[in-house]
Design a protein around this nucleic acid. Structure first.
Lengths: 96, 96
DNA sequence: TGAATATATGAACAAGTATTCATATATTAC
DNA sequence: GTAATATATGAATACTTGTTCATATATTCA
């Protein structure tokens, strides 16, 4: 069973979404609890614009989702799958 | 428990190693069986040089390891962890 | 030893990606 | 309505990464 081309591309895109330190920090933060953009920016030491750009990519990959509340948007992980992937990667890093 | 800086970087590097279509194809191939560079090149439709460069990165990230036999080097996944990570990603892509 | 083969590597270029800055949209409060 | 705040986005620049080409190393065989 060789991997078909589309799946290979999607898989690379998925891992690509987690391949940046700032996005890892964002995911790491969102594992603990949902958070709005400006708090994320403060917590991750990034500009709000940079955070927003990264969130967009994560949203497009369906790794996170936003919940609008007034003029704020609270982001959280899209599903447990993402958390598992992240934790498995972390495990590899720790015991690798 | 906030992720420390080093872990965040390592984690991003790990996912980064899997974030390219050609590397995904290589890993996908190596999940089935170990393979030498030129066969990998043929199977993945890449030049041997390109394969070798990619293998280097995967080796450095300890995702694969090489077994030298004469003038050939047979590559295989470094441990089961990698396979799990790959399969979990694939699962996300399939059912996402 | 020298020729042939398998793999590895350095440097240069090309392609992709992240960040910044300026600006836009959306919501709330007045 | 206007002002203030939160987030989003486009364009430009800077940075990173992958591929190619040329060359180097290592191994086998004659």
């Amino acid at each position: 069973m060789t991997l078909n081309e589309l799946k290979a591309i999607q898989l690379a895109e998925l891992f690509s979404a987690l391949s940046d330190v700032n996005r890892v920090r964002i995911i790491s933060t969102l594992i603990e609890k949902e958070m709005n953009v400006s708090d994320l920016a403060e917590k991750t030491q990034m500009s709000e614009s940079a955070v927003s750009h990264q969130l967009r990519g994560l949203r497009q990959m369906r790794l996170i989702r936003g919940r609008k509340s007034g003029r704020q948007v609270f982001y959280s992980l899209d599903d447990d799958h993402v958390k598992k992937l992240y934790l498995m990667g972390l495990d590899h890093v720790k015991h690798g």
